[in-house]
Amino acid sequence: MLVLLPPSEGKAEGSRGRPLDLGSLSLPGLNPARETVLEELVALCRADEEKARGVLGIGEGLRGEVAKNARLRTAPTRPAGEIYTGVLYDALELATLSTAAKRRAARSLLVFSALWGAVGVTDRIPSYRLSAGVKLPGTGALGAFWRGPAESVLPEAAGGGLVLDLRSSAYAGMWRPKGELARRTATVRVLQSRLVDGVEKRSVVSHFNKATKGRIVRALLESGAAPKTPAALAGTLRELGYTVEGGEGPDARALDVVVTEL
């Protein structure tokens, strides 16, 4: 099983780790594209802070992020699973997984990124600021830029198992599984169920969505389950205590997980 995750906008700072080594990252076929984006981002942030802020959509209070990007080649690195923070990663709690679950996480989790394309959670990267919605002056719109490199690398990484796609829309646009691979790719939507005047109301709430997805990934890693199809995934999640709708019929790949509280 391959699990595709979004990055977090907030990121932890690097520590005293060694600087970036592109050659050490997972999916080495993405390295030429990584170098292209990295080179332009660093040059932009070194040359003109105000222009960089405009391109990156960084407000006055975050101007330090430009300087951070300018130092990416020499900045200290940490495992990507420690760099990415936020609701999903707080709920996933990678650091507290069992030893076996940590090994599964290292093999099966990929975090999509506007800078790196996609990285494994044990890949060492520096803290950075760049979102998939950015359009760099030379490289162009990053969501579109990554589609070609991802298409040449990700199908092989997916292998013959299930792909669980938990990415947000901006990062889902960087690579969409096709053909037979698309048929064994599952997506999950989290719905909050509330009673309003005795009538059930369902809605998508960002905090519920992210936290529940983090818990789902954690539960799958700890269980050791390896469902091969979206229908099998639906059954596994039910066994793990989730209320799941979907997994059969024409929309078998789109699962709804219904929660009542965070």
Rank of each mutant, 00 (worst) to 15 (best):
A144K: 14
A144Q: 10
W146F: 14
W146G: 05
G148W: 06
G148Q: 14
P149T: 15
E151G: 09
S152F: 03
V153F: 12
V153S: 10
L154A: 03
P155I: 15
E156G: 15
A158T: 02
G159E: 06
V163T: 11
L164K: 03
L166I: 08
L166T: 07
R167Q: 09
A170E: 04
G173E: 05
M174T: 02
K178N: 05
K178V: 09
G179I: 09
E180H: 08
E180G: 10
L181W: 03
L181C: 00
A182V: 09
R183F: 00
R184D: 10
A186V: 03
T187Q: 06
R189M: 09
V190H: 09
S193G: 04
S193T: 06
R194N: 10
L195E: 15
G198V: 13
G198A: 14
V199A: 15
E200A: 07
R202Q: 03
V204I: 15
S206F: 05
S206P: 00
F208P: 01
F208N: 04
K210I: 02
T212N: 08
K213Q: 14
K213L: 09
R215E: 14
I216V: 13
V217D: 12
V217H: 10
R218T: 06
A219M: 04
A219S: 11
E222S: 14
S223A: 15
S223H: 13
S223F: 15
K228L: 04
T229K: 07
A232M: 01
L233Y: 08
A234W: 08
L237A: 10
R238H: 04
E239W: 05
E239D: 13
G241S: 14
Y242K: 08
V244M: 02
G246S: 02
G246H: 07
G247Q: 14
E248W: 07
D256T: 12
V257D: 09
